[in-house]
Design a protein around this nucleic acid. Structure first.
Length: 662
RNA sequence: GCCAACCUAGCUCAGGGGUAGAGCAGCGGUUUCGUAAACCGCAGGUCGUGGGUUCAAAUCCCAUGGUUGGCUCCA
């Protein structure tokens, strides 16, 4: 083995080390192994770059070390609390604890933060130490750190065991940890604890519940403040807040996690649907309308009854409730976790389910009559309402609801057509995401999950088809292991919004299962029956979630083509009310979505409240405008002067058109 | 579902054992007004819901619904 020295030794041999250097980054090493601290030995001939405070990579060191300091503080303040894991994350760090007294309160957080500052002020070094497995286990067993010991015992035999210590002599805190860390606690300049939550030991439901404390840390107070400001900005854009303020949608206990779209929100919602319809017309889709409730025979065939039951609402009639014998058997069969085929058959015969996906209905529709290869690919679109039972803790505004609608379609095609269809879908997505101003689109290929249907060979083929199609149109993608749907792998399209958050919108999934299960057939050019392939795809995904994402992306400022009202007319005094009504009538007759403020407020107040409602255009009407049959137009802060009604109508009609590529 | 916090007027929030408060919105009036808040007045709440403790509960306790932040799950 080549001789090794620590980066500190290597650097010091060349002169004093700049105190801004917190670690190094090895060249030509896997990304997750490249970041190394100054005290971890590396081969003498290793190539590396310095990681200085202020660089992105330095944050990982700072945050991981902050997690240690936090755990130290917690154990000082709350003796007997056991430590588990405490990594750096994208926005900060956390550490999971098992605390005897249960959860940490906000007051606890304040105390912990104060103690952290004391520890940081001791300016003590982080010291790395190699240790044998036996010694490590003995050390942490002695401290009663049962989680650490459990973890160590599961590590493979060739693991290098290291511990990191920090703190003044006599008060050193030690953690089993592979690093890397900053050189000194003094390198932690800006920390803040942000939240507490419960979590399961090693992320497994059923394991003991741990207390997680979240925090964040930056290279400077200034950077921390900037981050906190960005969090505030995200809060100000929160779609739930905007939805209320702009009177777009509401929620009610009468239907938890199910949005009520108010008149203004409904206008936007329908504009979105109409926009997608317009695309469908141009991209060769046929829209269908399908039932809400199906015999469970359909969901047995599709596999939903066996694989998706916990998320489905079931629809029973009074008659079924009345027959106690049948009802008891329904209950027993429905709650049986094994998915016993006999029980599924009974359910299929006696019960109905509310659709959670459109695909079974579309498969049913495909086999409605004999199909020819000449009609393929058949792109069958549906804005059907879906109902999915989501567990209480997961629902979130419009972004995660129990009833929603997707811009959903299923493409029935031959295997040979798959690649071209995915290419075409890509083109559609490019147009749409461009229209909404989403610049940054990332594609992920989600592969077979643990709970799935179909043979390995079919999964191989489907996964290969998706990858190949993407390569065919020259798109790069990441693999997302085990994240596919139960019936097939999928491509997920993730977009970044205006403040840098990533959201999954579109998806396209290859499915060999559904056609087989529904025994779908088309007649090929030789008169022989063939099984089609089904592609499940959505562009915006759920309209509800898209509404949320987009609302936050634009911070409530809808473009003219989507805004609930494109213009709001503001009167200077009651004297011009008649003309204002006439102008409103005229604009509406031209199809312009127009609001009118006739309240007795002064103009300044009207402008203020109209700005609050974020109308794209405002039009002031006073005596001059009434006289000249004009409107004093204003867009944002820009006054465009008095323009003739006719001209304004033309302008809004034009700007109100669906965006089109090319 | 799990851990925690929260729920007071349409909205945003104050009050935390002793007679329910403010601002905005609403309604009535005065003002008829030119580009980000005119003035005066009125009305509005079984303090999420149900139990309990107490002479007395918005306030303390228990249960339950909903919401929020996480965990897990996901469009």
């Amino acid at each position: 083995m080549a001789e090794k020295k620590t980066p500190r030794e290597i650097l010091e041999s060349k002169g004093p080390i700049d105190k801004d250097v917190l670690g190094i980054k090895l060249r030509g090493v896997k990304p997750d192994a490249a970041l190394v601290d100054l005290q971890t030995p590396i081969p003498l001939d290793a190539q590396f770059d310095l990681v200085r405070r202020g660089q992105k990579e330095a944050l990982e060191l700072i945050r991981h070390s902050s997690a240690h300091v936090m755990a130290d503080a917690v154990q000082r303040l709350f003796p007997g609390t056991k430590v588990t894991f405490g990594p750096a994350t994208e926005n900060g760090f956390y550490y999971d604890f098992d605390r005897k007294g249960g959860a940490f309160s906000d007051e606890d957080l304040a105390k912990i933060e104060a103690t952290m500052r004391e520890i940081i002020a001791t300016k003590s070094s982080f010291k790395r130490e190699r240790i044998s497995r036996e010694d490590a286990i003995a050390l942490f067993s002695g401290k009663g750190e049962t989680y650490k010991v459990e973890w160590m015992q599961t590590l493979p035999p060739d693991t290098e065991f290291t511990v990191y210590r920090h703190g003044p002599a006599g008060h050193e805190w030690v953690d089993f940890c592979k690093g890397p860390h900053v050189p000194n606690t003094a390198d932690l300049a800006a920390i803040k604890l942000t939240a507490v939550s419960g979590t399961y030991w090693r992320g497994q439901e059923g394991n003991p519940v741990l207390q997680r404390i979240y925090g964040t840390a930056f290279a400077s107070e200034k950077a921390l403040e900037a981050y906190l400001k960005q969090v505030e900005e995200a809060k100000a854009r929160d779609h739930r807040k905007l939805g209320k303020e702009l009177e777009l949608f509401a929620f009610d206990e009468a239907a938890p996690a199910s949005p009520f779209f108010l008149p203004r929100g409904a206008k936007v919602y329908h504009r979105l649907v109409d926009y997608v319809r317009d695309l469908y017309f141009r991209y060769g889709y046929d829209e269908v309308v399908t039932p809400q409730i199906y015999s469970n025979e359909v969901f047995r065939t599709s596999g939903h009854l066996a694989n998706y039951r916990e998320n489905m609402y079931m629809a029973l009639t009074v008659e079924e409730f009345e027959d106690e014998k049948v009802f008891a058997k329904i209950r027993e069969s429905m709650t049986d976790p094994t998915g016993d085929p006999e029980k599924l058959a009974f359910l299929a015969k006696h019960t109905r389910g509310v659709k959670a996906m459109n695909c079974p209905g579309h498969a049913q529709l495909f086999s409605h009559r004999k199909r020819s290869y000449r009609e393929l690919p058949w792109r069958c679109a549906d804005f059907g309402r879906l109902h999915r039972f989501e567990r209480g803790g997961v629902v979130h505004g419009l972004a995660r609801v129990r009833t929603f609608c997707q811009d959903d379609a299923h493409i029935f095609c031959t295997l040979a057509q798959v690649e071209a269809e995915i290419g075409k879908f890509n083109a559609l997505l490019d147009e749409v995401y461009g229209a909404f101003g989403f610049q940054d689109v990332n594609i992920k290929l989600a592969t077979r999950p643990d709970k799935r249907m179909g043979s390995e060979a079919q999964w191989d083929e489907a996964e290969r088809a998706l990858g190949k199609a993407l390569e065919g149109v020259g798109r790069s993608f990441e693999i997302s292991e085990g994240e596919g749907a139960f019936y097939g792998p999928k491509l997920e399209y993730h977009v970044k919004d205006a403040i840098g958050r990533s959201w999954q919108l579109g998806t396209i999934q290859v499915d060999f299962q559904m056609p087989q299960r529904f025994e779908l057939k088309y007649v090929d050019e030789h008169g022989k029956d063939q099984t089609p392939v089904m592609l499940h795809r959505a562009v915006l995904g759920s309209l509800e979630r898209f509404f949320a994402v987009y609302l936050e992306h634009i911070a409530g400022n809808f473009p003219v083509w989507l805004a609930p009202e494109q213009i709001c007319l503001l009167t200077v005094s009651e004297k011009v009310e008649d003309y204002a009504r006439e102008a409103e009538g005229f604009l509406r007759s031209r199809g312009v979505r127009t609001a009118l403020d006739l309240s007795p407020d002064k103009l300044g107040a009207k402008i203020r409240s109209a700005r609050g409602m974020r109308y794209p255009y405002l039009a002031v009407i006073g005596a001059k405008e009434a006289e000249g049959r004009t409107l004093a137009l204003r867009r944002g802060n820009e006054e465009l002067g008095a323009l003739p009604l006719e001209q304004i109508a033309d302008r809004l009609v034009d700007e109100g058109k669906f965006p089109r590529k090319g």
